[in-house]
Design a protein around this nucleic acid. Structure first.
Lengths: 212, 212
DNA sequence: CGCTTCCGCTACGGGTCGTAGCGTAACTGC
DNA sequence: GCAGTTACGCTACGACCCGTAGCGGAAGCG
């Protein structure tokens, strides 16, 4: 992704250009390998073989497994959308289910946790994840919040842009964190029942949880 | 941990017993290696060297890196406690900060995400994590909830034990998930400010978030 | 003392890593 | 067309880690 951007934005350099088909083939092969092998058993040589590409070609574009997988998985997050479902509750429920469906895909679940784990001791990788994955989701929170404010479901946010950002960060961490934890750590399904319970908790708070 | 339990519960077998010092040394060496090297660069041979133990001894007790690290990190969660801080809000804030402090320890942050990632394609490891780590935390939710109900801060839970379990699972995923996501994915600090904001959101819901 | 199990050590085949070197292919500017 | 430049496929390589086997010896039990 970053590599692709580089070749797209940079002025046409002399010499043979990098094969765009190879880029796509490598990323697709990486996702396929993640599905079949999981993170730990995935090797650069295997990916190269699947993509019909020499191993050296991979190393010319990505420093290693971590960077490659981040780019391979990042595009999955572009699918996330937030259609107007009429109410804040419906919007939250919808995005929760969408995000959960994304996490159900084996290439996503195994790769995401692994790269996050690596990023704890690799600042560059941390930035790469933030820009390639995290920031792409955050705008969903902004959209949903703006809509809810327009509907009168939420009060206008603070004038101070810092506090406004703080609260949207908070909401983001709560939603994404809860779904990830439910799905990957507790390894229980994020179904419509759970999404409804979670939405009620998020909107109304702990006291709102009571037998329906 | 499981290995230790095995040798503790099983009847005294004939022959030389396993060295308990070796167990402790290996687990400590594993944590030290996690701090210095992180997950990916940690090797069984390195751990054996640090522990002053032969590599074969490690393999006699653990099947591999995954199992070893789970056991090495599991004991960290025993530190988590939930002293009565007088109110539900204070209790939540306290456990959030405690959990965050635990996640700040490099041996915990790098190992936890990694084993969770591996567990997505390893059912046995998933069970091991659940029993060794997740279930140890869940009782904190029960405690806090029971206290809040005794104080009159929360209504009594449903008679149906299934719905009661469902809601405590939900609360657990929201709290743990949010802290993990904030700390490891968004890589921003879980400080007292954030803990206060989060607690207000959890107790009062989205509408309660407004300029103080 | 025999029996059993654990330990440390050495050695090994198999696999992955990341790089170097080579000849060739593709594209640019003169 | 022709040099110049860069990318590609291929091969080969040392380095490292894996997980296991086999050995002699140590530590307990009866």
């Amino acid at each position: 992704m970053v590599a692709a951007m580089q070749s797209r934005t940079s002025a046409p350099r002399p010499g043979r250009p990098r094969s765009v088909e190879a880029d796509a083939a490598i990323l697709a092969a990486t996702r396929a390998a993640l599905v079949e092998l999981g993170w730990s058993k995935l090797t650069m040589g295997d990916v190269a073989g699947r993509a019909g590409v020499a191993k050296t070609t991979l190393y010319r574009r990505w420093a290693g497994k971590n960077e490659l997988v981040v780019d391979a998985v990042a595009v999955l997050f572009d699918e996330l959308e937030l259609p107007d479902r009429g109410s804040l509750a419906a919007d939250v429920e919808g995005v929760v289910l969408e995000f959960a469906a994304l996490l159900e895909r084996p290439e996503a679940k195994t790769a995401l946790m692994a790269v996050v784990a690596e990023s704890t001791s690799d600042a560059a990788l941390r930035d790469r994840i933030r820009s390639s994955i995290v920031d792409r989701q955050k705008h969903l929170v902004m959209e949903g919040r703006a809509r809810a404010q327009a509907r009168g479901e939420l009060p206008a946010e603070s004038d101070d842009p810092e506090t406004a950002a703080r609260s949207s960060d908070l909401i983001f961490d709560v939603i994404a964190g809860a779904v990830v934890h439910r799905s990957l750590v507790s390894s229980k399904p994020v179904d419509t029942d759970w999404a409804r319970d979670f939405t009620r908790l998020l909107l109304g708070g702990l006291t709102a949880i009571s037998p329906t």
